[in-house]
Design a protein around this nucleic acid. Structure first.
Lengths: 139, 139
DNA sequence: ATATCACTTAAAGTAGACTTTAAGGCAATA
DNA sequence: TATTGCCTTAAAGTCTACTTTAAGTGATAT
């Protein structure tokens, strides 16, 4: 209960790197909630909003679509009634993420092998020597 | 030089899971090249096209945009003149992929911790006991 | 002969995540 | 007082990667 810093939309942009229009868009989508206004109707953000934006970024890093992020926060604001929903959502997303990571790691290895292979070709070109075959490099 | 199987667009769809319109789209983009036609103007695909489609899928698994995939194959078809370009492209994409994977792995851990945390809350709800705090679960 | 099927093209539509534009309000500064 | 700067909304535009639609051709099945 100790923080009560307030931020203009520009301040939030500076602090988070999220543009003003994206902030409005997130609010419209309902993933950034309860944004108060000052007497001129300008948005006022709090530290809770900064925290939320940090959370959103994490979920986005985990390739979670905004619709799921929205669902997550909806459940989180009423955990008693949505504890099963939120567990299911996070477990499901974790599984998807695991699969995505596995594919990416495989492709990363493949691409590292390609760099070695093409580097060998580069040398072969420079030395006018016979080109290597991919078989020697493919993992 | 031993394979000379030919495939209709439907066969390719069955074998690869890539829809006919996506195949036409890839051809239009130039990432699927030299698709011949039969006397009725219908597309004829070869094993090389199936290989290419496998490669495209790998790159897509590595979150490579179609524009870069196109660039890659353009360079690959003229390695002598583009060996530096292709090495740069693949190295750059590998680096980006590494960063993406790192973020995803971090978020995966975070989400696994969340599942444990919410499971503990679920038990607390069931047992009418005090809720745990996130601090005990956050990694 | 006619219906059906697979194919063709070009163009329009979709989804997600924003960004840009247009039109205007309020407040401080020159 | 006029300009500048930051804010507002609603709507339209952008980008990627497709998908869907419309209109039409040609071969096959009944």
């Amino acid at each position: 209960m100790s923080e009560k810093n307030l931020y203009t939309i520009k301040n939030v942009t500076k602090l988070t790197g999220v543009t003003a229009s994206t902030l409005r868009y997130y609010e419209e989508l309902g993933i950034l909630e309860d944004v108060e206004r000052d007497k001129n109707d300008n948005r006022i953000y709090t530290d809770e909003h900064l925290d939320r934006l940090g959370g959103i970024r994490c979920f986005k890093d985990g390739a979670m679509p905004l619709s799921k992020i929205r669902e997550f926060y909806r459940y989180e604001s009423d955990l008693e009634n949505h504890i099963d929903d939120i567990i299911e959502l996070v477990e499901e997303q974790t599984e998807e993420l695991t699969e995505t990571i596995n594919k990416m790691v495989a492709q990363k290895k493949h691409m590292e092998a390609k760099v070695k292979f093409y580097s060998a070709i580069k040398k072969a070109i420079e030395n006018n020597s016979p080109w290597p075959s991919w078989d020697e490099y493919s993992d």
